[in-house]
Amino acid sequence: MTRHVTNIAAFVTAADVSGDLITRSYCGMVAIELVLKEAMGLSDHNVPAALNHFANKFAVGHLYGCKARLNAIATQLSNAIGAISVQGIDGKPRAAPTASYPYIRYTRHVVDGWAAPSTTADQAQALSDAVMNARAYLKQKFGKPL
């Protein structure tokens, strides 16, 4: 039983309809986090690490071949999160921590006039693509509501 079914559905819908790449990524990551929380008791925001743990726990038997793909998706996601420049608590720019995707709420978009480092449209697109890829794979291979 999925206890977060309503929340997952809401964030999936928000991710699917948003025209903003960071919003789409953020909402998609929340949905993935909730699915992983249900599957494994995830207690933090480290979705890439949780995907690796998920692979070790669930990519077994007839899904054994999925382990390498999930690990690759986790690496892609981690790299894409880390490429996003955000405003740190101290007011200074920093890379979004890969273990805490919610920092992307404070993205420093180059189009907003932030000095370097700032996030380009290509970096935002890469993150959105990585999140969509993770969602699609978890849905297709593991039947997760993403």
Rank of each mutant, 00 (worst) to 15 (best):
A10N: 09
Q87K: 03
Q76H: 13
Q76N: 15
N56S: 11
L77D: 08
A121I: 05
A124E: 15
C27W: 01
F54V: 05
V110A: 15
L51Y: 04
A15V: 00
E33W: 01
H4T: 07
D44W: 08
F11A: 01
I73Y: 06
Y101C: 07
C66K: 08
A83E: 09
I8P: 05
S85H: 10
V131H: 10
S78L: 12
P102S: 06
I84Q: 11
I32P: 01
P145I: 02
F54N: 05
G82F: 02
K57L: 14
N7A: 14
N133I: 00
C27P: 00
D129V: 11
V30L: 15
S18C: 04
A115C: 09
H62K: 15
M40E: 13
Q87F: 00
G88W: 05
L42D: 04
N52L: 03
V17W: 02
F142E: 07
D129I: 04
G65I: 02
H53S: 14
A10R: 10
A124F: 04
P93M: 04
D20M: 02
R135M: 15
P97H: 07
R105S: 11
Q123N: 09
T75Y: 14
V131M: 13
Y26I: 00
L70P: 03
E33I: 02
Q140R: 11
I73N: 10
N133D: 14
N71I: 03
S128K: 06
N46K: 03
C66P: 01
T120I: 04
S43R: 15
L138N: 13
G82Q: 11
T119R: 11
K92A: 11
G113D: 15
Y101W: 14
P48S: 06
S85T: 03
F11H: 14
W114P: 01
L51F: 06
F58E: 09
T23W: 05
A121M: 11
R94H: 08
P102N: 09
A59D: 07
N46T: 01
N71M: 07
V131D: 08
R24H: 03
A31S: 12
